[in-house]
Design a protein around this nucleic acid. Structure first.
Lengths: 193, 193
DNA sequence: AAAAATATTCAACACCATGTCAAAAAATCA
DNA sequence: TGATTTTTTGACATGGTGTTGAATATTTTT
């Protein structure tokens, strides 16, 4: 299949070039010409694989989504399912793809990619919760959306911090906040008196 | 000052044209040429006001941020500050600028704009909470980020629903979830036994 | 209402990334 | 090695870009 070493190499260096530029400027400012110059690949070759830089970005995004999805599926099948375990897994997967994720989620990232991620997280992680909620289906969807976007948002901040915090710690924070909100963290616990 | 009626009209129709296209495709796919044709404004006139379509978008975004910021500041100065009141105010302001917000936050929106919004919300609404949290400053920042991005995320979903839910209802949901998480909404409340 | 100031229009220009092509060269696979 | 596939090369027309100066139109000022 698509295992020709030349094709593999071409896509690899073109992808690296795009990611590099995405850390500097939005996709709209990036030209096919400069991607090819950076990667030292002929422009005609680029067009043999992608229609333009947006197409290239979409395909890289799709590859990542596919990757994290299969990771989650295999995780859910094998491991004992602690509530926090999956969240840790997600953050670890993100950390392993730090540079790519920073480009896709950061300042010059793509909102459609965010939405794809929300879909994956909702599908694999949050969907189970949804059935246990004693609220309207629509309200439950809104609540899941808040949690999913909050999760992605803090993940992005974490990436900008170069993933300095441990994935377990971040996952713990997220799960606690999702379960009980900020109340347990407040200073004035009048109940203690 | 900048009150010449011609300038005002030009910027207005150019802005409307850009927003219209943003509901159809990403800014990168939008050309200065088509913005001007849609607005029936000469291309040279466009360049008298903006360097390109990105510059135009940034200026429209900045205008909105400025608007919501002054709205929040005046709100915090005049009204009795109920915890939920400010959140209602934000959602109402968003609803009043539905079409614009949908373009700026939707599928073809801009992540930098999201970040600007996070900054405003954090600054005006969440900063007070932060001091009351019994956690590290860094952890508190992460928590605020989760709440802010969750808030924006659900706001975007709400916009796509054409703001069908009342702002008060949505604000209530957000505040409850932020304060106590999903626990109070769960079906199996074993504590009741 | 006329004059002065300012904004917009118009036409034309060079520039450059784009997307495509056919033929040659290079690398891979069997 | 020989056949196949990919990449390179150079060339081409196309179209949006950004700028310019003069003409025209509109607003503001006196």
């Amino acid at each position: 299949m698509a295992t020709d070493r030349r094709v593999k190499y071409t896509k690899k260096v073109l992808g690296e070039a795009l990611i590099k530029f995405l850390n500097e400027k939005p996709i709209a400012r990036i030209t096919v010409k400069e991607i090819c110059e950076e990667a030292d690949i002929n422009r005609a070759t680029f067009y043999a694989h992608y229609t333009d830089q947006f197409d290239q970005l979409k395909k890289i995004e799709a590859e990542f989504i596919e990757g994290i999805n299969s990771f989650l599926v295999s995780y859910l099948l094998t491991s004992p399912q602690t509530e926090i375990g999956v969240v840790v897994g997600i953050f670890e997967y993100v950390k392993q793809n730090k540079q790519l994720c920073r480009a896709l989620l950061g300042r010059n990232g793509d909102i459609e990619f965010q939405e794809d991620l929300i879909r994956v997280i909702s599908g694999c992680v949050l969907s189970e919760w949804q059935g246990r909620l004693n609220v309207d289906r629509r309200i439950a969807e809104y609540m899941m959306y808040i949690l999913a976007t909050g999760c992605i948002g803090v993940g992005t901040l974490w990436l900008e911090d170069d993933c300095s915090m441990a994935p377990e710690q971040l996952a713990t924070l997220v799960v606690q906040l999702a379960n009980n909100g900020i109340a347990p963290f407040l200073i004035d616990k009048q109940k203690q008196l």
